[in-house]
Design a protein around this nucleic acid. Sequence first.
RNA 1: GGGGGUGUAGCUCAGUUGGUUAGAGCGAUCGCCUGUCACGCGAUAGGUCGAGGGUUCGAGUCCCUUCACUCCCGCCA
Length: 594
Amino acid sequence: MNKYRSHYCNNLRKKDVGSKVLLAGWINKKRDHGNLLFIDLRDNYGITQCIIDKENSNFSSLEKIQLETVVKVEGEVINRSNETINKEIATGEIEVKIQKFEVLGVCKELPMPIFSDQEYSEEIRLKYRFLDLRRKKIHENIILRSKVISFIRNEMYNYGFLEFQTPILTSSSPEGARDFLVPSRLNPGKFYALPQAPQQFKQLIMVSGFDKYFQIAPCFRDEDARADRSPGEFYQLDLEMSFVEQEDIFEVVEKMLINTFKKFSNKKLMYDKFPKISYADAMMKYGTDKPDLRNPLLINDITEIFLRKDVSFEIFKKLVKKGFNVRCIVTQNTKDRPRSFFDNIDKWAKDQGASGLAYFTIEKEAQIQAKGPIGKFFSEEALAEIMKKTKAKVGDSIFMACNNQKELEKITSLAREKIAKDLGLINENIFAFCWIVDYPMFEKNEQTNKIEFSHNPFSMPQGDLKKINFDNPLDILAYQYDIVCNGVELSSGAIRNHKPELMYKLFSIAGYTSQQVDEKFSGMINALSYGAPPHGGIAPGIDRIVMLLADEKNIREVTMFPMNQNAQDLMMNAPSEVNENQLKELSLSLKLKK
RNA sequence: GGGGGUGUAGCUCAGUUGGUUAGAGCGAUCGCCUGUCACGCGAUAGGUCGAGGGUUCGAGUCCCUUCACUCCCGCCA
């Protein structure tokens, strides 16, 4: 028999009554009745109540022991009387009468309680992560994460994918996020970069003829953190397939995601087949390319209304003449909402840096009229036109903003979320997936006025490749797609451009010479000229998938050892200073800003 | 880089208009308690009110600066 335990802390049941057992674990909770002591012993699997009374010579030493001390307990499984059965725990019908015990690991006074539903500051949680991870919810989240990854890995094998590792020390890439750099000792003055994603490697794997690849890949990007974005590193289910079109990828990924979400969550899927929304449509209807489809509110453009003579809302009319647009959100049957509801939203919009949201409610007495601060500026005919355009009905309210397209998208997208939240329109018990498709290949940088790749520069442009009009690069769409779930961007992918000539052409539009392309992407561009198969892929974010499944709002709740917002590991003290010798070996010297 | 929030005992928090010796619960220590499962009861210890400066007779409270954590914007092909 094992020296430490004969059973786990969730094993024992009524049938074990009478048997002698060895349990080992942490002292989760003590209830000391003076001459009788209850101890809840906890391990990874569960909790068993152990009991000892004054008759036993070990009583007084066990009575003094700290919570979270690791002990080994030897005793007999005994029955609990009916009134003392605890239905909350699986082992609640029995308890272990302690005969002997031994301390295996002492515990100092705790900086934070383990057995408690209290919330603690992130600082203390991250510094003592090993204690934090003992707590029930996060312990379960991490176990869920393991199971999800294992399940996904198994699914991918079943679909015929092979798992390969790719290098962690690689080269810096000019596109995308800021790189993490690693100085090279053997090549003074030169640096490796940690991969932002195994993008080029997975394409090279396709060129190497492996057909279907996946990897639970660590990705490193030196960008600032958000609640749903770890600083530093995160994991993607990176995958790539040869001889495929967009639809082939959709089929595999949809199947994988649906199976995973059905297995690990009780929430319903809003769509069993993910709807496809073009990037342009998404930006119009939702103001963002990561729409939360649980939210029923839609955005409408009503710029034309403000060209009418029977509309006299001069502030908007002037802006419209200058080329601005007006977009609006209709809320159903809100005519009886208190004035504070409308004013709160207007005030909120101003806090967001917008000039506020104008609003009115459509009512009907003798005739249809707009009620609210700006209602009087609209004629009955103009209102009819608005109602036609927005499908608004009597009793509905309309919130409007006027601005340039980019600002409009921003504020209406935020307003859509805010208003839906205020009205309680979002069903939290649903997962609403969708594909966002038809991303533009290029976009114009507002500041520099230069044409840039809007997403992945290795994407394949859409349409007949012989007939693409490179004179209007902003009109070129790419086979580029994202998966969005409940407003969270879960993955993005593309059919890749496997034709070197076309690649040079596209890069030249973004301002790169062929020489620069050869230099920056030497591995790949070279490979593409030795018989590259058409291929494509996608990379769903593992952390965010687990976050959705665990119903957490913060990615650190599903990450075992996360860094804080300033990209520091408070437990391991990273990053840290290094000594002179280490710097010298790397031919580095520091020039710190004061 | 910018904006918001928070910072009071080991932990979670309260602290009024600026006014005596800064409080509670949990935890810790000590004592009582044989059926609890958030056990109960009593006592004790524990504080640079994040830090620095200012206003004031007097600052946890008001002002300025700064630090830490967090949320957001920028950034994230």
